[in-house]
């Protein structure tokens, strides 16, 4: 049996409370508040206590999906990414860079947001990148 507590940040509101995810043999078994955290000081609200409850939900997407007619079929990463690359390049070449847009995300990490805007700006040459900060 391998047990560990992994210190991380609550995925819900902007308070940024600290919490530990309890992991037993590679599975999440619970959440503990972080005593030493300057904002949450060993407390969590109901959302924080349930921070990992959705992680193993059966609805989680597990494979890339490609639309075919009215439904989706499973695809390999290679096929899905090749299709995306081909389509985006085709649209850029036909209509120009301003015909492509990107939504980055207040739920993704800083590193991920950085990369997406870098891809939009440095490769596609568009500033059409925004997220739901206003919403």
């Amino acid at each position: 049996m391998e047990y560990k507590n992994v210190l991380t940040v609550c995925p819900y509101c902007g308070a940024g409370c600290g919490l530990y995810i309890q992991v037993l043999d590679g599975e999440i078994v619970g959440v503990l508040p972080a005593k030493e955290h300057p904002v949450s000081r060993g407390k969590l609200c109901i959302k924080g206590w349930n921070a990992t409850a959705f992680v193993n939900h059966p609805d989680r997407l597990k494979k890339p999906l490609i639309r075919e007619g009215g439904s989706f079929r499973e695809a390999s990463w290679d096929e899905a990414l090749s299709l995306i690359a081909e389509k985006l390049l085709q649209i850029r070449d036909t209509y120009g860079p301003q015909a492509i847009g990107f939504f980055s995300s207040a739920k993704c990490t800083n590193e991920e947001n950085y990369l997406l805007q870098k891809l939009a700006r440095s490769f596609f040459k568009t500033n059409n990148v925004d997220h739901c900060a206003r919403l």
């Binding site: 992994v6 210190l7 991380t8 940040v9 995925p11 902007g14 308070a15 940024g16 600290g18 995810i21 992991v23 590679g26 599975e27 999440i28 904002v39 990992t52 959705f54 992680v55 989680r60 997407l61 597990k62 494979k63 890339p64 999906l65 490609i66 639309r67 989706f72 695809a75 899905a80 299709l83 995306i84 739920k107 993704c108 990490t109 800083n110 590193e111 991920e112």
Partner: peptide, 29 residues
């Protein structure tokens, strides 16, 4: 095309909370 991504519990990175506080997100599973 829909691409399946990892949740906060499944990746490393940083979040910046409302008081400009940069903190580590750590992969648990």
């Amino acid at each position: 095309v829909i691409l399946p991504s990892a949740s906060f519990a499944e990746k490393d990175g940083t979040f910046t909370s409302t008081d400009r506080r940069i903190q580590r997100v750590r992969k648990a599973v």
